[in-house]
């Protein structure tokens, strides 16, 4: 129980923020991806609101490139906790808005899902979306407020962020604006795993070691072999013992070689690993120094 005290502090901070969201907004939503961070958010929401129902639905923006294990897990969790789930598909947005789908060997719909997210916010008139972003993930995220106001176009303006003083959160917005609220802003990857261990939170099996067919990228990352990839004849398919540190799209989330069977194995592994979570697993952030900053300015969560 060495970590108990600070995990309690982080937990209380996160639940306090969720209660502020529930107390201040008319139409909140919780963005749920099926990854460990949003699974932790659901766990925190259970602590905040049970025995009553959540004052918000879960919203999944389905890129169509998901791991089937993550989708199964999502559906099981939703039926187990008996909460409302809204799914909106990037595939439908591409058709409706006549967008150009992503291409290349490892087609990423990361930028395209912003359209679907903004359309979904419009459709349900959500005034706030709770997200599982953490400030330790990336240096543009390290700059973002806990209540982050987005303009009419969903854009984050890093130069016009409101002051956020003490733990008093100003959720008042003008018409057209909405807020992204990040209850686990101050958690690190390791905090999340310690919390998962302490609270015995269930996760999709792909977080743990398993055999998988993978393809190497030019920078030697291991991508899951799937029908979504556009491989050429030079690409070799290997079978490796891997796990995922993050669960995003199959096409742009890399696996790491691992023998970790349990949460405590994972904690040991993270403690000695020398590569950051995003550095190890996300192709999309390697493109430029400001990749995340630019996507956020365009409305990405």
């Amino acid at each position: 129980m060495a970590f108990a005290e600070y995990l309690d502090q982080l937990e209380a901070e996160a639940i306090h923020i969720m209660l502020e969201v529930a107390g201040q907004f008319e139409r909140p939503a919780l963005l749920f991806s099926g990854g460990k961070d949003s699974i932790c958010l659901v766990h925190l929401a259970l602590k905040a609101f049970r025995p009553a129902k959540f004052p918000f639905p879960l919203v999944h923006i389905d890129t169509g490139h998901n791991f089937p294990e993550a989708l199964n897990f999502r559906d099981q969790l939703v039926s187990q906790i008996d909460e409302k789930l809204i799914v909106r598909k990037v595939e439908d947005t591409i058709k409706k808005r006549k967008l150009t789908d992503s291409s290349g060997k490892f087609p990423s719909r990361n930028a395209l899902q912003t359209y679907t997210l903004l359309d979904t916010i419009d459709e349900f008139e959500f005034d706030v979306c709770i997200g599982g972003a953490r400030r330790d993930e990336e240096k543009a995220r390290a700059k973002e407020r806990i209540f982050s106001v987005r303009d009419d176009f969903g854009q984050w303006n890093p130069k016009k962020q409101r002051p956020e003083i003490w733990d008093i959160y100003n959720g008042r917005i003008n018409k057209g604006e909405n807020v992204r609220a990040f209850p686990i802003s101050n958690w690190t990857e390791l905090d999340i795993w310690h919390y998962i261990e302490r609270e015995k939170i269930e996760l999709p099996e792909i977080y743990f070691t398993h055999q998988r067919k993978v393809v190497k990228t030019d920078s030697d990352q291991l991508m899951a072999y799937s029908d979504y990839l556009n491989l050429d004849i030079h690409d070799q398919i290997f079978s490796k013992q891997v796990r995922y540190r993050t669960v995003g799209d199959m096409t742009c989330t890399a696996a790491v070689e691992s023998e970790a069977f349990t949460v405590s194995d994972i904690i040991k592994e993270i403690k000695i690993t020398k590569i950051s979570e995003r550095g190890a697993t996300r192709m999309d952030d390697r493109i430029s120094e400001a990749a995340m900053e630019d996507r956020k300015k365009n409305g990405y969560f």
């Binding site: 330790d136 890093p158 690190t188």
Partner: peptide
């Protein structure tokens, strides 16, 4: 430095 950034270590 223009805006506050949060960093974590233990």
């Amino acid at each position: 430095t223009i805006d506050v950034a949060y960093k974590y270590f233990s």
